[in-house]
Nucleic acid binder design. Structure first.
Length: 157
DNA sequence: GCCAACGTTGGC
DNA sequence: GCCAACGTTGGC
């Protein structure tokens, strides 16, 4: 069986790689994903052992901040049923939950952010959603060759 | 804060 | 099922 590679976006002002580092066992559930395409990935395709780039968006230092490993796959995101939560979804039926999440564990925080600008400048990187028009998906697959190439660039920082 | 590019909603 | 209006994302 072949593992898969992903990129998860997060806004560091809300929850960034340092917050993940400060969690017990450096593990946290990746909740609050409210987009169907991203949900489908989380529910069906993100598997234990997959590797994930943690990407910081909507902030001063936009780019890839580190790597996490999936330690629990596809289960119901409980925040959708919590009326107090900003991720509450009153239209989601508890008998047939709409939203899913996974658990990730931090593996590495890079010394520096691999910036979106530099990623866009790499001629080797053409497939990842980050470099494509739109680029709004918060959970996106990364091809193995591009994951490994980007990782090598992070190591070189 | 601006605004382009999306995704979602809802009337028909 | 179409599509206009609306809401959100995210880089800058």
């Amino acid at each position: 069986m072949r593992m898969n590679y992903w990129l998860f976006k997060t806004e560091p002002d809300a929850f960034g790689i340092d917050d993940l580092a400060n969690m017990s066992d450096q593990t946290e559930h990746w909740d609050g994903i409210r987009n169907y395409q991203a949900r489908n990935f989380l529910r069906d395709d993100v598997k234990v052992g997959d590797l994930v780039f943690i990407y910081h968006s909507s902030c001063k230092d936009v780019g890839i901040a580190g790597i996490a490993e999936v330690v629990k796959e596809g289960y119901v995101d409980h925040t959708q049923f919590d009326p107090e939560c900003k991720y509450h979804d009153p239209k989601s039926d508890p008998q047939k939950p709409r939203w899913y999440m996974v658990d990730v564990k931090l593996m590495r925080k890079f010394d520096r952010i691999l910036s979106l600008k530099s990623i866009k400048s790499m001629s080797e990187i053409t497939q990842i959603g980050l470099v494509k028009k739109g680029n709004r998906l918060s959970i996106m697959p990364v091809e193995q060759v591009e994951f490994e190439y980007l990782l090598a660039q992070c190591d070189a920082l």
